[in-house]
């Protein structure tokens, strides 16, 4: 997954990592029905930690905000309180939070298992590309019959 953008920043503290993983699990839990892991899955989470890149500081701030809302430690709350605090945090939708949420989604929706469950091949678009059907060009027939629409200009 390496890219220019994935250069490791100063990184997240252990506590911040723990909270991030809890949040990821709340966001997208595993599902037996769809045969997909949760966003806290080991591989997905490792991808997240590698990919914070230029957003590391913002993500750390978002997690600090979460802890502050939890009265000190989000991880230390019971499940019901965690739901409530995360709900408020999410509703506030700070720019830092948006970046954190985006990180989770970026890593989750490129995981092989998740892509397969969506009937996508787990590969980059290039070089194989994709097939797009030509479609039914007879749909254009009514438009072909239209009179000219553009105006003459003096």
């Amino acid at each position: 997954m390496a890219s220019d953008d994935a250069a490791p920043g100063p990184g997240l503290t252990d506590a911040a990592r723990h909270a991030l993983r809890q949040v990821a699990a709340m966001m997208i839990p595993a599902s037996a029905e769809y045969r997909v892991p949760g966003a806290d899955d080991e591989l997905v989470f490792a991808d997240m930690l590698r990919s914070t890149g230029r957003d590391t500081a913002a993500i750390a701030r978002a997690l600090a905000d979460l802890d502050a809302r939890a009265g000190g430690s989000f991880a230390g709350l019971d499940a019901a309180r965690r739901e409530a605090v995360a709900g408020e945090w999410r509703a506030a939708a700070s720019p830092d939070f948006i970046l954190l949420q985006r990180l989770v989604l970026q890593c989750y929706y490129r995981d092989d298992r998740v892509m397969r469950s969506l009937d996508m091949e787990p590969r980059p678009p290039f070089p194989k590309g994709h097939v797009v059907e030509q479609g039914d060009w007879s749909l254009l027939d009514p438009v072909r019959k239209r009179a000219r629409m553009w105006r003459d200009a003096p």
């Binding site: 220019d4 590969r123 980059p124 290039f126």
Partner: peptide, 16 residues
């Protein structure tokens, strides 16, 4: 080296 060559192509559209 364009994003479409990697699995992180959508992430890079929001980064570099």
């Amino acid at each position: 080296a364009y994003p479409a060559s990697g699995r992180d192509w959508e992430a890079r559209q929001l980064g570099d």
